[in-house]
Design a protein around this nucleic acid. Structure first.
Length: 294
DNA sequence: TACTCGTGGTC
DNA sequence: TGACCAAGAGT
């Protein structure tokens, strides 16, 4: 858009920074399959990368590919997911494996629209797989990328509410023409947002984009837009769901209703949380007990 | 669009 | 110490 702008993304500096400062994550090694990359992307949704690594390794040791996962019992999948959070992702991942096997011949699709048809794969993950696993020059937009663009290009402290169309177009405009450069750009800008241009305390002194950053040039003005609603957790249904599922996950996959009653005192909320777990397919109701789905 | 959906670390 | 945040997706 603004090809003559003095501020923006210095792509060569960004890519050069990554080659020296990027983390040596296991899924960035040579020879990692598309399925393995899809797996780490799904696990990383709203979850810190450090927590993902060990689960990713254990998971692949048990179910190396989509065929193995598709044949697994949901109860085992939920347990292997452990405490990564948002356990519905585990069920969707298994459904995703089924679709990959039944519809795509066991191979992770390369087309973005095909990827979007997979359960648990949305706008970010579809393009992340297309780019990182298949080397395609498609815009990859996550929270890190949105923040870096907001600062370096737009001179704003925060990205504001996400808008898929706008965000994709904004990053598309920044994407280098050559495929290899586009992939390197996406990996690097995400990493910069994760390690340097962080939400809380950006380390501008260590940032390769600081000389060209519109936000730095403007004197790092504070965010003027609306505050994001702070996510409460204590006392919510989510917490109760987590506590209920934790009991089932740690034991042999089943627990009496009486045992689960001890988890939360408010009977109405407890019943609502359990009903939603059943509705999600994470729990199955028995006579006087509940179990993980076998 | 706005809301729901886990878990744990950080400052 | 509690608010904030973390490679989003689905409805």
């Amino acid at each position: 858009m603004t090809s003559t702008a003095t501020h923006g993304i210095d792509t060569p500096a960004l890519i050069s920074w990554f080659s020296g400062a990027g983390r040596a994550l296991p899924w960035r090694e040579d020879g990692v399959s598309a399925w393995e990359i899809l797996l780490c992307e799904v696990m990383s949704q709203q979850t810190p990368v450090a927590r993902v690594e060990p689960v990713w390794r254990d998971w692949l040791a048990r179910w190396p590919g989509p065929a193995e996962l598709a044949a697994a019992a949901p109860a085992d999948v939920i347990r292997m997911w452990g405490k990564l959070g948002y356990p519905r992702r585990a069920l969707r991942l298994r459904e995703c494996a089924v679709v990959v096997v039944d519809t795509f011949g066991g191979e992770v699709p390369t087309d973005v629209d095909d990827l979007l048809s997979l359960p648990g794969v949305g706008d970010y993950t579809a393009r992340a797989v297309a780019c990182f696993a298949h080397g395609q020059a498609v815009p990859v937009v996550d929270t890190n990328v949105r923040r870096v663009v907001a600062r370096a290009v737009n001179g704003l402290a925060e990205a504001g509410p996400p808008s898929n169309r706008r965000d994709l177009a904004a990053v598309e405009a920044l994407l280098p023409a050559r495929r290899e450069d586009a992939v390197a750009f996406s990996v690097a800008i995400m990493e910069l947002g994760a390690l340097v241009c962080t939400a809380r305390s950006p380390d501008c002194d260590a940032c390769p984009l600081a000389p060209s950053c519109a936000w730095v040039a403007a004197g790092k003005p504070a965010w003027e837009g609306p505050r994001r609603k702070t996510q409460t957790y204590a006392g919510t249904d989510r917490q109760v769901r987590g506590m209920l599922l934790d009991v089932l996950r740690d034991g042999d996959g089943t627990a009496t209703a009486a045992r689960l009653d001890l988890v939360w005192p408010d009977e109405v909320q407890r019943a609502r949380a359990m009903a939603s777990l059943v509705d999600d397919g994470l729990v199955v109701r028995g006579e006087d007990r509940y179990s993980l789905p076998t």
